[in-house]
Design a protein around this nucleic acid. Structure first.
Lengths: 344, 344
DNA sequence: ATGAAAGCGCTAACAC
DNA sequence: GTGTTAGCGCTTTCAT
């Protein structure tokens, strides 16, 4: 199975390589006669010719590959959705994606960017798995887009989730069900600062819209895992009856999972006695809880698509400000009316 | 920022491109004089030269890229671990991985294999996200390795999890804690046939080793989600006291999660009244449950590494039979002694 | 409508 | 030790 070159096709069809190139790339509108086209195609087929993209890339200065450097493909379930989004549009447009995981190591990151530009990728997507503001690594190619992070020193297109709008949607959902005493189980101050702050802003705005004065006792924090959520929810449920929340909005689904545990352990029903809304829409958590969790989805797939679309210049992007991708609310079974009519 | 070529470096250093190539690739052992080497390196540095891998690849017929085609990077949390394993070894050896997700669509698959071989990848990894026997797609390059699946018509190296040994380990763990009545909450007959069968074999073997005759009533099935596990566990717990299991081995962590719910809803303590072992070691589930779940880990990271190692010829592999990668047991808090001494 | 020839940027014999 | 030269397999003017 020796490699078959274009010249082999040319010889077999009795034409020049230039002609072969024309018919194989030129579509049917080329100026080559129909008869010759047929001969060439048949010859190519017959001898099993497959073009060598490396040679083509060298000549055309286009590799039809885009690099994707990320800090962690493995450690979050979200990474896959981003990748999938990017991959889908790449594939649909004849592009391949070259993936490098840098594990958040700056040295590996530099090395990755170098390897990728050395490989002449047509564009580069720089992705982080948590919404952050990051310093732009050196040596980025002209066509670079930031995914789930913003470059410190603007001037690159970027896309991040609209966390504020997400917090707003979550709390509005609870408000619409009739709740007035709504708690926010927030992340620890050390973690996920941006998401935490933005979702909290959404929370406050929603309360404001409903004319509710936020009760500081209803803003609690914990580690962003189930046990942290459970502890925070316990604190809330220990409040005297008249100050206790009838609903909680949790920073993420895992904390919401802990809130379920807290409620269930004291015989409280979800959503009968306590309504709960999460954030992230992690399938393994949100959909599997009993009852299934109403939550706000992080639009990783859409962000991945968006990034690839601007990388391939399929979509214009303003480098001045990051695009805010909507976080839709996913209604499942954890929100209901408050247990009894409530006054403020 | 026009592209800088090797000839620019040569000109700047006053040598030929051949010399530049030698010093830049030849390591320090080349036959170029130390003085010239210095001049070349300095010139390259000064004008910011970066080699063009496409040109190099065309010449050397090595691209230092390996293709990875998978059926789903997005829909399972395991995909990331496989990718990470593959990526880590690729990176450590100066290789890049080109990823394509085919969504299990044969047409896309053919197209992916073609694109990748056209791109002259040095090797190809064909990955599936569920342990399966698959028909080998046409046109695979000589150096192909199968990941988490076996080619129907042998003759390619492959690696899959040792599910049988995993089931064995899970049940031995329960046996060691003193249990005798151990149930297996299995997958539905329609799902994951290979894993289901193999884990069951491990279960039976472990019981056999302990001199226990399997009780068919203790082998139940359900959908491989939390609700399926809950229903199955409920059925088990409804058994008369003398036939009821004191421990259950669940097909996966999600079903185990359902078993927790079933136990908790009837006031049973885990592991006080019921010990539970899962399978998969899904972080989001196993580690977050209360108590944390003892489970058997699927070695995705290791399989990813293995596949890339044989792809890069760093490790020999026999194409005759798939390699069985061990599934280690992860001890957490869901296994304890049976509630009271038990007789068979 | 088709072919000749140059060259993408690099490496590797082979000369000197 | 270093330079010359000939490609790797393709695309693309420019002739014809």
């Amino acid at each position: 199975m020796a490699k078959i070159r274009m010249s082999d096709v040319a010889a077999a069809a009795g034409v020049s390589t230039a002609t072969v190139s024309m018919v194989l790339n030129g579509g049917s509108n080329s100026r080559i006669s129909a008869e010759t086209q047929r001969r060439v195609r048949e010859a190519a087929e017959a001898i099993g010719y497959a073009p060598n993209s490396v040679a083509r890339s060298l000549r055309t200065r286009k590799t039809h590959m885009v690099g994707l450097v990320s800090d962690s493909i493995a450690t979050t379930p979200f990474a896959g959705r981003m990748l999938a989004g990017a991959n889908d549009v790449a594939r649909d447009h004849g592009y391949l994606v070259v993936l490098v995981d840098t594990e958040d190591d700056p040295a590996l990151e530099r090395q990755a960017v170098q390897a990728l530009t050395g490989q002449q990728v047509d564009a580069l997507i720089y992705a982080r798995m948590w919404h952050r503001v990051v310093p732009a690594p050196a040596g980025l190619p002209a066509r670079t887009v930031f995914l789930d992070c913003c470059p410190q020193d603007g001037s690159w297109p970027a896309v991040v989730p609209d966390e504020r709008e997400g917090g707003l949607a979550a709390v509005r959902e609870l408000l619409a069900a009739g709740h007035r005493r709504i708690a926010y189980v927030d992340a620890d101050e050390t973690e996920d600062v941006i998401a935490s702050r933005l979702r909290h802003e959404g929370y406050l705005q929603a309360l404001g819209e409903a004319g509710i004065t936020p009760d500081p006792a209803l803003h609690v924090r914990g580690e962003t895992v189930a046990s942290g959520g459970r502890a925070a929810a316990d604190a809330l449920l220990d409040l005297p009856a008249d100050r206790r929340p009838t609903a909680v909005f949790c920073f993420n689904d895992r904390m919401a999972m802990g809130a379920y545990t807290a409620a269930h352990r004291r015989g409280l029903d979800v959503p009968g006695d306590l309504s709960i809304v999460g954030y992230d829409d992690q399938q393994l958590v949100a959909a599997e809880l009993d009852p299934p969790l109403t939550t706000v989805a992080l639009p990783h797939y859409e962000m991945g698509r968006w990034a690839m679309e601007v990388a391939l210049d399929l979509r214009a992007a303003d480098a001045a400000a990051p695009v805010l991708m909507p976080c839709p609310i996913i209604r499942r079974g954890s929100v209901g009316p408050p247990p009894h009519p409530v006054a403020d």
